[in-house]
């Protein structure tokens, strides 16, 4: 168990999201209240269609809730403009998606330094930091490789390094092992665990695999758009 500070870095209050298929309302989240403390490693689990990814999209400000509130570091994200949301994501959040989603025309190093470039950091700083992060994820020898020259696990490690590059307050991972074999999946989740412990990063990970979910400090379970445990 990692140490937490006791203040919620992430909090949702009565969060609701509905989609419309024609005129038919399909609720995906039906009033979700969760809290994640700073420094926690939390798994969000639930069966397919339970609203895990929808919740993650709301938390990551990639989508807008129908009602309710998302607070990250105490800030109500619904009050932010689109530009402020971009700035917020750049400064406070790190994303890891299930498809590795690297830029195929960039090397591992270039993929990792991209968020720092967007933050306006200097070349010397982002190159040093990029190298450091790739070493943390075990890819110190693959820095100038293109994604097509890396295995699935290695690509996901690059994504993790990229997600850490902007020194986020909250790391959001959406099924980060969905396209990996079981051994590599365990390695990736263990890497999350190490990052959580050593770097003190708060991690909010969506997964449907029980074994992987249990490696987190805490599990939040969703079913039919509601927190059930």
């Amino acid at each position: 168990m990692s140490s937490t500070t006791g203040s919620p870095i992430l909090e949702t209050v009565n969060l609701r999201k509905s989609y419309f298929m024609g005129k038919v309302e399909v609720p995906a989240l039906r009033g979700v209240d969760i809290k994640v403390e700073e420094g926690e490693f939390v798994s969000l689990m639930g069966p397919s269609g339970s609203g895990k990814t929808t919740l993650l999209n709301m938390v990551g400000m990639l989508d807008v809730p129908t009602s309710g509130t998302v607070r990250i570091t105490g800030i109500d994200t619904s009050l932010l403009s689109d530009v402020e949301k971009s700035e917020f994501r750049l400064e406070k959040l790190g994303f890891i998606f299930q498809f590795f989603n690297l830029f195929m025309e960039l090397t591992a190093m270039e993929n990792v330094i991209l968020p720092m470039m967007l933050q306006g950091k200097g070349k010397e700083e982002y190159l040093r930091k990029g190298e450091e992060l790739l070493k943390v994820v075990g890819l110190g020898e693959r820095m100038s490789h293109y994604p097509s020259e890396l295995s699935g696990g290695q690509q996901q490690r690059v994504t993790i390094a990229r997600a850490l590059a902007n020194e986020p307050a909250l790391l959001l991972a959406d099924e980060p092992t969905a396209n990996l074999d079981s051994q590599t999946s365990i390695e990736i989740v263990d890497l999350f665990g190490r990052i959580n412990k050593k770097e003190g990063k708060t991690i909010f990970m969506v997964t449907h695999e029980e074994e992987l979910g249990r490696r987190a400090d805490r599990i939040i379970r969703l079913r039919d758009g509601l927190v059930v445990g």
Partner: peptide, 16 residues
């Protein structure tokens, strides 16, 4: 498309 989505998700503004 997917890369543009990721780019915006990690905080790039439309201008990038």
């Amino acid at each position: 498309k997917r890369q543009i989505g990721i780019l915006k998700a990690i905080g790039a503004k439309n201008d990038v």
